[in-house]
Each structure stands twice: as C-alpha cells, then as structure tokens.
C-alpha cells in the first residue's frame, strides 16, 4: 500500500506537468498578448512590458521559466493586476471554491444515494418512476440553465433566497442546487441500478435468513457493495463539478478561483492561467487518487500494489 502511494505520487506529478505543458503551448499558440487590449500604448511601451514579463524571450526559455515557477510554486504577479501575485489570488479564491465544491459533492452524494436507494426499494413503484423522471431531468438540464432558472424562481419571483454572492449559508443554497443537481441525478440512477442488482444477491437472502432488520440489511450488506460503481464515476463527477464551478461562480458572482480562471483566459493573463491550471489539475489528480484509495477501502478484494494492478 505504501509503495503504491509513493508510486502514485510520482505519477501524479508527471500528470500535472503534462497538463501544464499542454496548457502552456496551447496558450501560446493562440494569437494575442496580454497587452493587446491596452488602448493607447505605443509599440515601444508594449515591447517594454513584454520584456518586463519575459514574453520577448524564445518560447523554450519562457517554458523553462514557467516550469521553474511550478516547481517553486511561485507564479509571480498577475499581468492584469500587478499589485497582487497569482498566489494571492489562489489563496483568496481557493477557500471559497473549495467550500462550494465540497458542499456540492456532499449534497450530490448524500441526496443521490438516498434517492437511488429509495427508488430501488420501491422498484417499479410510483416513487421509483418519480425519482427517475427527476433524475433524467437533472441529467438533461445544463447547470448554467438551471442556475438562471433557480435565480428567476427563488430569488426574483419568490424572493426567498439571495440571488448572488457568497456570504451566508442562505447564499450557498442556489449555487449548490444548480451545481449539484446533475451529479446527484447521475449518482441516483447509478445507485438504483447497482442496488437492484445487489439486492438479488445470495448474501442479501442470507442476511434476511439471519433475521436482520431491513435497515441493517440495506445499510450494512447492500449499500457497501452497491457503492462500487458510484465510487468509480465519482472521479469523473468531481472533475465535472470542478469545471462547473467556473460557470456557476461567474453566474452567482462568487469570488472563488473560477472567476480568476475565466477572466485570466479572456485577458491572456499568462501567469494566472498557468497558476490556476496547475492548481486545478493538482486538485483533480489528487481527488482521483483519493477515489482509488476509497475503492480498496470499500472492497477488500481490491489490493493496491506498486505494479498498479489490482
């Protein structure tokens, strides 16, 4: 297990470096520069600015500087807001984005699994159909559409919840709702089908024959086995939620990292793009790693070893 973790750690580093490299070259292959939008700057001023940020150097030199900044985790100042560094932006935005992400994942997981279990237990009943109709809707509606719908309904028409920003628990309800519905629907459908399969297994019949209560049979015997497929897609869902936060933060004016990320791309703010990309991909890679660990905790038959196999 320890050997596996060490090996995974190195693979994670390589993955992040690859993502960073790809982002770097993609970014530089797009025409334009951070100073294009500055009106009234002369050619000479622009050249000076570019020289200041090292943008006049050949690409490989810039790349080397960039790799160095990743390793030292110091991305320098933002080009657009020179009075703050990328690290400042990240440390300010990350806690908020993290909060949104975690609340969303937990909401999606808890409500999705609960919905899935109820649907499975009422298989082909009214509640099952209701839950699955809801799930199909949840999967089909993009989060940005849902976001505007819930703002219209809850904030504008009914006025019961704030429409934007991130300052109190009440402010968190709508963004979480918009972001969590999709993943929740996917989890609910998966839990349901997986639960239905598990409930026909012999060990469930045996648990019943032991005289255990239905609650214990569901929680202790069925759920743990039914969770395997859910854990498998959890990695992908986390990636989806992470990218979803960009849009949702923008719509709800939440001062998280997503806002800086989107703005930085529009502004060609290279240090911020690079910093946020590396940061986001590190989180994602780490989350996927946690999912793999969760696997082996759920199912004792899966042994993690250094060969990377099961």
């Amino acid at each position: 297990m320890a050997k596996y973790i060490v090996k995974r750690f190195f693979i994670m580093i390589i993955t992040v470096l690859l993502i960073a490299t790809l982002t770097f070259f993609l970014m530089h292959s797009i025409p334009g520069s951070p100073f294009n939008q500055e009106r009234g700057t002369s050619e000479a001023v622009q050249a000076n600015l570019e020289a200041f940020y090292g943008l006049d150097q050949p690409l490989y030199v810039q790349y080397a500087m960039y790799i160095k900044s990743i390793i030292t985790f110091d991305f320098g100042p933002s080009i657009k807001n020179p009075n703050q560094t990328v690290n400042d932006l990240l440390s300010r935005g990350f806690p908020i984005s993290f909060e949104l992400g975690i609340i969303t994942i937990l909401t999606a997981l808890v409500s999705g699994v609960t919905l899935g279990i109820i649907a499975a237990l009422r298989h082909n009943g009214f509640i099952d159909y209701l839950a699955m109709t809801f799930a199909v809707l949840g999967i089909s509606i993009p989060n940005f559409v849902l976001a505007t719908l819930v703002i219209q309904q809850f904030a504008v028409n009914w006025g019961i919840l704030p429409a934007a920003t991130w300052s109190s628990p009440a402010h968190m309800v709508l963004p979480t709702l918009a972001l969590a519905t999709g993943p929740m629907a996917i989890i609910a459908r998966l839990t349901r089908s997986s639960m239905l399969e598990v409930l026909t297994q012999d060990y469930i019949k045996m648990a019943k024959a032991k005289g255990l209560t239905p609650f214990r049979i569901i929680i202790k015997h069925a759920l743990k086995n039914a969770m395997m497929p859910v854990v498998t897609i959890l990695g992908t869902l986390i990636a989806g939620i992470l990218t979803g936060t960009f849009v949702i933060e923008k719509i709800f004016a939440i001062p998280g990292m997503g806002k800086y990320f989107v703005d930085s791309i529009n502004n060609r703010d290279y240090p911020v793009i690079m910093g946020t990309t590396v940061f986001y991909s590190s989180i994602l890679v780490f989350m996927l790693f946690l999912v793999d660990i969760a696997y082996s905790l759920l199912d004792p038959r899966i042994k993690l070893n250094a060969k990377g196999g099961e």
Binding site: Q201, D202, Y203, M206, A209, K210, G211, L212, H221, N225
Partner: peptide, 24 residues
Amino acid sequence: LRKIRGADISMIFQDPMTALNPTL
C-alpha cells in the same frame, strides 16, 4: 417472523461463493 428466522430456524444456502458478503 424475523425473531424466529435465524434464531430458531436457520438456513444454509446452495452456493457458499455467493452466500457470504464479500465486503464484510
């Protein structure tokens, strides 16, 4: 019935490979 099941009347199933919960 649940109080009797497993306490006074027990059952042994056909396939031991599937009768035990793999995760417990």
